[in-house]
Amino acid sequence: MEKNSNSSLTWFPPEFKELNWRLWSFALILILSAGALILYPVSEYQGYVDPFYSPTVLVIPLIALFRLSCYAYRKDYYRHVFRHPLACIDGIRFDDKRKGYSGEMTFFSLNNFHRYFLYIAIVILPFFYYDIYVSMMYVPGEFIFRLGTIVLIVNTILLTLWTFSCHAFRHLTGGHTDCYSCKTAGGAKKKFYNGQSYLNRYHEQLAFISLIVVLAVDLYIRALIVGWPVDFTFLKFVI
């Protein structure tokens, strides 16, 4: 059987040379979404900071790269955008010998820098917790707890769980270790690894739920701005 040779690969992947409407419509959706975020900005409304603008809209490309290089999303766009393969069952795989394929040997080897985007995401994460604080304390001398704060809390928890269930985080915090008993506090390290591995099982679900919730929070804040009565105050007192 003739085999592809690594040396015959060029950096520009054959996947991009095909007439693939899924790929270009996916790229178009990303460009239109980025344009919409810039043209119709929402900085802050009654103490609610839109997650797309926290701390600044300028970090969006970095967060987008964190999402795009995430193992969970990689699986899905290789399957559904490139159909390599669409499904595991014969007959609906839609993969073919004639289709060019380079996997993560060429352009997509950039996905290997996922851990650097993870570091950035960990730095950005505290801003979302600060936003929760701001949503409750935005009037000086007053504490207010509203439905919007609960929405922000749910969003932040989901983003935290998704970030820390990452496969790269799993590797960096324990996966690279072969001998736990040889290390200082190896037992604790292994327990942490086991706990993180449990969370990691749900990484795919968390990736998509957190993405949908971020979009929903953005729409919720935009709905408030245009005057929809979708916010309720549960608690309010002077401090």
Partner: peptide, 13 residues
């Protein structure tokens, strides 16, 4: 068998 790299693309994987 189910791996598309082996089944459809015959790379050196």
């Amino acid at each position: 068998d189910v791996c598309h790299v082996i089944r459809e693309h015959q790379s050196n994987y």
